[in-house]
Design a protein around this nucleic acid. Sequence first.
DNA 1: CTGTTGACTGCTG
DNA 2: TCAGCAGCCAACA
Length: 108
Amino acid sequence: MNDFYDMIYEVVRQIPKGRVTSYGAIAKYLGSAQSSRMVGWAMNNSHSQKPYVPAHRVVNRLGQLSGAHHFPPPGMEAMLKKEGIKVKKETIVHFDKVFWDPEKELKV
DNA sequence: CTGTTGACTGCTG
DNA sequence: TCAGCAGCCAACA
């Protein structure tokens, strides 16, 4: 597979439990901050990835579960709640506290 | 081959 | 402050 997608999946897997990140953060970490859509597209393809990709920990910059409709059961919100993240309807509560920035944490 | 859509973000009105 | 438009890259019809 391509390194670009691989990077995305890898970063997403590095997201600690109870934490989340945004497409823009990943895109920026990859150097394609303007191509945040590609991150979303990669997530769409993440279903084909062998190692499970916790795509439920990836949301838009508003902390909204924009991809919840695309996520398989039991549901993105349910999984996030299971992780200890408070989710109100389609939005993550205290998103700022659970936000995980790859550039800041994974920064080498 | 061209055109449209999309798990997004940022700026402008 | 809230709402709308444009930009970006890739896949699908």
